[in-house]
C-alpha cells in the first residue's frame, strides 16, 4: 500500500500521465481513500496552472520595436 509520501513523490509523472498504468492505478486507489492527498493533488494542479498563467507574458510592443532597431543596426 502506498503512503502519502510515496504518492507525493510520483506527482510530477502522475499529472503528466506518464506513470505505468499499474502505478497510476495504485496512486488512484490511495487518492480514493485519502482526503489530504486529494486536496494536495487538486491544489498542486491549480498551482501549476496559476504559475503558468502568471508567467505567460508577451514581449512588450515598444521593446520589440527597440529590439528590431538594435538588431538592424548590427546585422549584416
Amino acid at each position: 500500500m502506498m503512503t502519502c509520501r510515496d504518492v507525493n513523490g510520483l506527482l510530477v509523472d502522475y499529472v503528466d500521465g506518464a506513470l505505468p498504468p499499474e502505478v497510476a492505478a495504485a496512486v488512484e486507489r490511495h487518492l480514493a481513500s485519502c482526503e489530504p492527498c486529494r486536496a494536495y493533488l487538486a491544489t498542486y494542479r491549480k498551482t501549476r496552472a496559476l504559475g503558468a498563467q502568471a508567467a505567460r507574458v508577451e514581449i512588450p510592443d515598444e521593446m520589440r520595436t527597440r529590439l528590431r532597431q538594435f538588431l538592424l543596426e548590427r546585422a549584416g
Binding site: E35, A39, Y40, A42, T43
Partner: peptide
C-alpha cells in the same frame, strides 16, 4: 488536519 485538507483549487 485543517491545513492538510485545505483545498482552495
Amino acid at each position: 488536519r485543517a491545513f492538510l485538507v485545505a483545498d482552495w483549487s
